[in-house]
Design a protein around this nucleic acid. Structure first.
Length: 424
RNA sequence: GUGGGCGUAGCUCAGUUGGUUAGAGCUCCGGAUUGUGAUUCCGGAGGUCGUGGGUUCGAGUCCCAUCGUCCACCCCA
C-alpha cells in the first residue's frame, strides 16, 4: 500500500498565515519574562528516560504510557521530553546554577506525549515554561502566578479562572494520603476501576475523578487543606494574600492535585471555558523536593507550563490583536532596464530600512497580474517601476488600501517617503 | 487505550431509491484598446470521489478492512 506522505499523527505544521500569532506570542512572552528578570534557558528535546521517571513519577500516566521512548544506536534509553521542568532542573544541577543561589529562568519548545489527539491536545505540542529556584518564601509563588496574569494582559486575552490549592509539605501530604486511603478503602467496591487502581498507586488522583459515583464518595472525603501543617497553612495563606494585593482573582479548588508527582505546597491552574474539554491553558506549582530528588542540593522551586497551542487558539477565538507579518510594499517591475533597476533599488531600501518588509515581484507577469499579486500579498503600497519611470529615475507609489492617490517619487527620496508613509 | 461523527477540486460543500463524459461557490490563471489591483462581465485550469478489497451488468453512492481527521472519555498544557 502506497501511503501518502504526511505529517505524523498529532503533529501539526504551522503555516505562514498562522505563524504571525506564534511570533507575536513568543515576542510578548520573552518581553514579559524578561521584565520580571527571568533569563532564557535552551534545552535539548531528548533526555535520558531515567530523568523523567525520577522527576515526573514512575506511576504517572505521562511516564507510564505517553512517552516517546527509544534506544539510540549506543543502547542508551532516551525519551522525547514530555514536559520541560525536568530538563530545566537537570540542566540547573549540571551547570551548578542551583548551588545556594536564586535562579529565575524560562524555557520554551516542543514537548511530546503519545495520546489520542483531540481539540487542544496533540502529540507534539509546545510549552512556555517559567521556573524560579532557591526561593522558599510565598512571595515567589505570587510572582510566578503574576507573570502569567501579566502575559494574559499583554496578549489581550481574558476569561480565565485561576484555580488554587495547596498540597502541603511532603510529610503533610503523606499523612493526608494515609487518611484518604483509609477513607476511600471503605468505599472501594463503589469506586470506578481507574480510581480503585489509583488507590494503591496514586490516591490523590482519585480526588480528580470525573466519575459521578466516585465524585460523590470524594465529596465526603477528608480535606487536604484540613491536614496541612502549620507551616504549609501559613504559606498558603500568604500566597492568597499576595494575590489579593495584586488584584488577581482566584478560586480554591480542593480537588486540584495535578498529575505530576513532584508538586508540593502551592499548585495552580489557569483554566478557560472556551476550549472544550482541554481547558487548562497554564498550570504549575511548587516542587521543593525535586532538585534534591534528582541529585542536586536541596533547593526549593516553583514554576508553570503553558500550552502554546491552547493559548494561540484562545487568541484567535477572542480575536486579540496580532501584528500582521505581511509585506509593507510590493514592488512591481517590468521592462528589462526597469527590472534591473528595481532589483538594485529594493536591495538599497532594505539595507537602509531594516524594518521595511518589501516583496520584489519575481516570475514576470504583466502589470495587471503583478498588482493582483501585490493586493493579495496584503501589502499597503505598491511600487511600480517600468522603463518610463526608470528613464526618469522615479517610481510610482500607489496605495492599495485607499490611502491617497498614486504619485511619482524619485529614487533618492524613496526611503524617506516610505518611512513617512508606513510610520516605520 | 475506549466510544461516536466525518473523509468528493487548493478551500467550503452539493451529489436524489447505486445508472450515461462527477457539480457549485470561493480561490487561482487569462481576456474585456497594447502599463494599473481589490468591483463587474467573459473564458480557462484544477478531482484515479482517503486507500485497499468485496457485492453488482453497473458504486462517490451498499458491505468489510485500513489510514486520516474531528469530538468526547481518559489524560493533561
Amino acid at each position: 500500500m502506497t501511503q501518502k506522505l504526511q505529517a505524523v499523527r498529532g503533529m501539526n505544521d504551522v503555516l505562514p498565515a498562522d505563524a504571525a500569532a506564534w511570533q507575536h506570542l513568543y515576542a510578548v512572552a520573552a518581553e514579559v519574562f524578561g521584565a520580571y528578570g527571568y533569563g532564557e534557558l535552551r534545552l535539548p528535546v531528548v533526555e535520558r528516560t531515567e530523568l523523567f521517571k525520577r522527576a515526573v513519577g514512575e506511576v504517572t500516566d505521562v511516564v507510564e504510557k505517553e512517552m516517546y521512548s527509544f534506544q539510540d544506536r549506543g543502547g542508551e534509553n532516551l525519551s522525547l521530553r514530555p514536559e520541560l521542568t525536568a530538563g530545566v532542573v537537570r540542566a540547573g544541577i549540571e551547570h551548578g546554577l542551583l548551588y545556594n543561589q536564586q535562579q529565575r529562568v524560562w524555557c520554551t519548545g516542543p514537548v511530546f506525549r503519545y495520546e489520542r489527539p483531540q481539540a487542544g491536545r496533540y502529540r507534539q505540542f509546545h510549552q512556555l515554561d517559567v521556573e524560579a529556584f532557591g526561593i522558599a518564601t510565598p512571595d515567589i509563588d505570587v510572582e510566578v502566578i503574576a507573570i502569567a496574569a501579566a502575559l494574559w494582559r499583554r496578549l489581550g486575552v481574558s476569561g480565565f479562572t485561576l484555580q488554587l490549592n495547596s498540597l502541603g509539605t511532603p510529610e503533610a501530604r503523606t499523612q493526608y494520603r494515609a487518611a484518604l486511603v483509609e477513607y476511600l478503602s471503605r468505599y472501594e467496591s463503589s469506586l470506578d476501576e481507574d480510581s480503585r487502581r489509583r488507590l494503591g498507586s496514586n490516591p490523590l488522583r482519585v480526588l480528580d475523578s470525573k466519575v459521578p459515583a466516585t465524585r460523590e464518595i470524594v465529596a465526603g472525603a477528608p480535606r487536604l487543606l484540613d491536614h496541612l501543617d502549620a507551616v504549609s497553612a501559613t504559606h498558603f495563606e500568604a500566597v492568597q494574600r499576595g494575590l489579593g494585593d495584586l488584584g488577581i482573582d482566584y478560586t480554591i479548588n480542593q480537588r486540584l492535585v495535578r498529575g505530576l508527582d513532584y508538586y508540593t505546597h502551592t499548585v495552580f491552574e489557569w483554566t478557560t471555558s472556551q476550549l472544550g474539554a482541554q481547558d487548562a491553558v497554564c498550570a504549575g506549582g511548587r516542587y521543593d523536593g525535586l532538585v534534591e530528588q534528582l541529585g542536586g542540593p536541596a533547593t526549593p522551586g516553583i514554576g508553570f507550563g503553558l500550552g502554546i497551542e491552547r493559548l494561540i487558539t484562545l487568541i484567535a477565538l477572542q480575536q486579540a490583536a496580532v501584528p500582521g507579518n505581511a509585506s509593507h510594499v510590493y514592488f512591481c517591475r517590468f521592462g528589462a532596464q526597469a527590472e534591473a533597476a528595481a532589483s538594485n533599488l529594493a536591495e538599497q531600501l532594505r539595507n537602509q530600512q531594516p524594518r521595511l518588509r518589501l516583496t520584489l515581484n519575481a516570475g514576470g507577469g504583466g502589470l495587471k497580474s503583478q498588482l493582483k499579486r501585490a493586493d493579495n500579498s496584503g501589502a499597503r503600497y505598491a511600487l511600480i517601476l517600468g522603463d518610463d519611470e526608470a528613464a526618469q529615475s522615479v517610481v510610482q507609489v500607489k496605495s492599495l488600501r485607499g490611502e491617497g492617490d498614486p504619485f511619482l517619487c524619485s529614487w533618492a527620496e524613496l526611503p524617506a517617503q516610505l518611512v513617512r508613509l508606513l510610520g516605520l
